[in-house]
Design a protein around this nucleic acid. Structure first.
Length: 595
RNA sequence: GCCACCGUAGCUCAGCCGGUAGAGCAGUCGCUUCGUAAGCGACGGGUCAAGGGUUCGAUUCCCUUCGGUGGCUCCA
């Protein structure tokens, strides 16, 4: 893998095309709004954007017109000319562009790049001129617009964006667009967006009656309907079985705790902006829990611990409440109340490497069981503001990294991205559409064992401070379910389906046979229903198909006579009449194989 | 929270420039008993998100609140 060096996206031709198209867009916007103030306009993973300060909000019609102007410009084969300039020259050129002036000043100081990220060395200033448009830019760009295919460019939407991502600064209008090498690639991308829309878990959640959230209950609070709840139960049952086998102990803890608890854990110091206002109970302040750990720590603390009982592993599907700004809420993926598949490990320093290995592999096993097979990881290290002995941080970081290497997972290091209390590994999975989602997190915690004064008695008879690992594998059941819905487009593997088989009697006279079958099939442990409505078979098939039920068992005169069922699958395949025993065997095989 | 857009029956949506609403599906009730993706008919269902304002009159215009969508920021 190391010797096949993949071309970095930033070095690719497509990157230049997109970046250049962003400039062309800015040029077109300036034609339409000569007084527009321009901010920044980079290429991004799937296209590009440019931020503008405009006299009025953009409409969809504006986008159409800007796009038309862009095509016209592209066809003019405009050259991109680079010129290295001094800061003084830059200030001349952009004297009426306040955002550019600010960039130049920062670049001059040599402290920030165009995104406001700190840089170590002083950067050279340059401009790129394309036709009437000149932008402060370090490039690179295409030589001229003949390299851009006007039929492979499309503007997508307008959104608000703060100047430099800072909510205290001006709100700009960002136009998102996409550009590709050819119209076929553009179409493939637009089709992908279309497919993603079809799989949207909010849409499928409604259609398959999985979950909802309603105004009267509150934003970001999820109601799990019977179908969704059934799937959740299957997930939780599997999760519990696996944890049982892996020597976890299960605990249950309350939803609220006294202010003092959160004071000790430092949540009120470091996490308060994510916590809800306190509840007054007989003059004492209580807070809804944003995390489960302080409770687990208290269970650990309930008696003297010997090194012999380590590692201690406490697991709980614990429901936590975190304040999220209304604008960030999103279906199941971002909510205000959610259930973590949480656990805390307490171990000795010597046990730490094997404990990390264990939890990482356990995590991968769990995710694979649900059909996720591609992972990437981030190792987040010590931030500037951190608690705990730096030497222990180094140990912990090394342990995490070694474990990632042993597990053979590709990872990036997020320098300084750890939590204040410890370094962590965040695992991302790739779904069927190759989109990445962060689910799992494995975190060291140097803070709480200290704050809660956790100890164990070592071989030497002296008290020692245990290491603590905090982990969630599926992350939260809500988010996990949302990702699962989109991954499978609602057609979950059989083992997860709330209804695995639907018996479809053709006429009323087949009802008794259908009910008899149902009994036998249910006794065989399969979730089965009979469609006993006075509908035509075709209608019943259609409805079952739309519910994505894996097995449709059609029974009429022939089946009744031969003691068979006619099997139809949700992909439209039609294996036809088989013995009931053969069906049960097939179903059990597929359920056990989790396919 | 901020910017833009949106909020009409359970669902998907129509309703031009102000004169208090309509379709398909779903539901209920009949009829139909049917071989691999929607049988026919009848009926019921909306304080047009909520509150306030302008107006003789507001679903339609204005304001506020709540909720949603796309982003910004943040995160499981």
């Amino acid at each position: 893998m190391e010797n096949e060096k993949k071309e970095r996206y930033e070095d690719s031709h497509l990157y230049k095309v997109r970046h250049s198209t962003a400039h062309i867009m800015a040029s077109a916007v300036l034609e339409r709004f000569p007084n527009a103030k321009i901010a920044i306009g980079p290429a991004i993973d799937t296209g590009f954007y440019y931020d503008f300060d405009l006299p009025r909000p953009l409409t969809p019609e504006d986008l159409d017109e800007i796009e038309a102007r862009m095509r016209k410009l592209i066809k003019e084969h405009i050259r991109f000319d680079k010129k290295v300039i001094t800061a003084e020259e830059g200030k001349q050129i952009f004297h009426d562009q306040p955002y550019k002036l600010e960039l130049i000043e920062d670049l001059e100081k040599g402290q920030f790049d165009e995104h406001g990220n700190p840089v170590s060395e002083k950067l050279e200033l340059s401009t790129y001129t394309s036709g009437a448009f000149t932008d402060l830019c370090r490039g690179p760009h295409v030589a001229d617009t003949s390299e851009i295919n006007p039929s492979a460019v499309k503007l997508l939407n307008v959104a608000g964006a703060y100047w430099r991502g800072d909510e205290k600064r001006a709100m700009l209008q960002r136009i998102y667009g996409t550009a590709w090498e050819n119209p076929e690639d553009l179409k493939a991308y637009l089709d992908l967006l279309e497919e993603a829309k079809k799989r949207d878990h909010r849409k499928l959640g409604k259609e398959l009656e999985l979950f909802s959230s309603v105004d009267e209950v509150g934003a970001g609070l999820i109601l799990w309907h019977p179908n969704g709840a059934k799937i959740r139960k299957i997930i939780e049952d599997y999760w519990r079985d696996e944890h049982e086998k892996a020597d976890y102990d299960f605990v249950y803890t309350p939803h609220i705790g006294k202010a003092q608890l959160w004071q000790t854990s430092e949540h009120l110091g470091f996490y308060k902006e994510n916590m809800y206002s306190p509840i007054d109970i007989e003059g004492q302040e209580y807070y809804l829990k944003p995390m489960n750990c302080p409770f687990h720590l208290h269970i650990y603390k309930s008696k003297i611990r010997s090194y012999k009982e380590l590692p201690v592993r406490y697991a709980e599907t614990g429901t936590v409440y975190r304040y999220e700004r209304s604008g960030v809420l999103h279906g199941l993926l971002r909510v205000r109340g959610f259930t973590q598949d949480d656990a805390h490990h307490f171990c000795s320093p010597e046990q730490m490497p094997q404990e990390i290995d264990f939890v990482l592999n356990f995590c991968l096993k769990m995710l694979r069981a649900f059909g996720f097979n591609e992972f990437t990881a981030y190792l987040s290290t010590r931030p500037a503001k951190a608690v705990g002995d730096p030497a222990r941080w180094k140990d912990a970081e090394a342990a995490l990294e070694a474990s990632l290497k042993r597990a053979g997972i590709a990872y990036d290091i997020d320098e300084g991205g750890g939590a204040f209390y410890g370094p962590k590994i965040d695992l991302k999975i790739k779904d069927a559409l190759q989109r990445e989602w962060q689910l799992s997190t494995i975190q060291f915690d140097f803070n709480e064992p200290e704050k809660f004064d956790l100890t164990y008695i070592g071989e030497d008879g002296e008290p020692h401070r245990p290491y603590m690992v905090h982990r969630a594998l599926l992350g939260s059941l809500e988010r996990f379910f949302g990702v699962l819905i989109e991954h499978y487009a609602g057609a979950f593997p059989v083992w997860l389906m709330p209804v695995q088989a639907m018996i479809i009697p053709i006429a009323d006279r087949h009802m008794d046979y259908a009910l008899e079958l149902k009994k036998t099939i249910r006794e065989a442990g399969i979730h089965v229903k009979v469609d006993d409505r006075s509908e035509r078979m075709n209608a019943k098939i259609r409805d079952a198909q739309n519910q994505k039920i894996p097995y449709m068992l059609i029974v009429g005169d022939q089946e009744m006579e031969n003691k068979q069922v006619s099997l139809r699958l949700r992909n439209g395949e039609n294996p036809g009449a088989i013995e009931l025993a053969a069906f049960l065997e097939r179903a059990h095989m597929e359920i056990d194989a989790k396919i």
